[in-house]
Computed example of a mutant assay.
Amino acid sequence: MDFRFVTRALSTRAATQLGAAVHGRTGTDVDVHIAGSAVPLDDTARDAVLELLTQLATVKAVAIGTVNELLTTSQAAEVLGVSDTYVRKLADAGDLPIEMRGTHRRFRLEDLLRQRDRFR
């Protein structure tokens, strides 16, 4: 994965303030302003912004980057938060769809996200 932006954790004070603002919101009441201009967000973008703010409020470092549509076994394991061996086991059991590229397994990001939701 290509992490283009990594930020350190916020201070505890800033994280507490951000957490209160994010968790105190209701429905779709999220406003994004860039250089004084309001920018409307669709549901997907709004969810992504809220997730970013939620993660920043946890007092942990956050990385933002691009993810290819087809991932290696190691990348799939990172997305799922499991070992490479477990990913191969899921794939071999037919519980996780794969695409073969020669002798290499490749995993679709959408399949991994669906599987990750099942883990939670």
Rank of each mutant, 00 (worst) to 15 (best):
M1K: 06
D2S: 11
D2I: 12
F5N: 03
F5T: 14
V6K: 11
R8E: 15
T12C: 01
A14H: 13
T16F: 10
T16V: 12
Q17P: 00
Q17A: 13
L18A: 09
G19C: 09
H23K: 12
H23T: 11
R25H: 08
H33G: 00
H33D: 08
G36H: 10
S37V: 08
V39Y: 11
P40T: 12
P40K: 04
D42S: 05
T44L: 08
T44R: 10
A45W: 02
A45K: 10
R46A: 15
L50K: 01
L52G: 00
L53N: 04
Q55I: 00
A57F: 08
K60M: 07
A61Y: 05
A63H: 05
A63Q: 12
I64H: 02
G65R: 07
T66L: 11
V67E: 13
V67K: 03
V67D: 03
V67W: 07
N68D: 14
N68H: 12
E69S: 12
L70N: 03
T72Y: 01
T72I: 05
A77V: 06
E78P: 00
E78F: 03
V82M: 04
T85V: 14
R88F: 00
R88Q: 10
K89C: 01
A91D: 01
D92T: 10
A93M: 07
L96N: 00
P97L: 07
P97M: 05
I98F: 02
R101G: 00
R101C: 05
R101K: 09
H104Y: 12
R106N: 02
F107H: 15
F107L: 02
R108L: 15
L109N: 01
L109H: 04
D111P: 11
Q115I: 08
Q115E: 12
Q115F: 15
R116H: 08
D117T: 12
D117P: 00
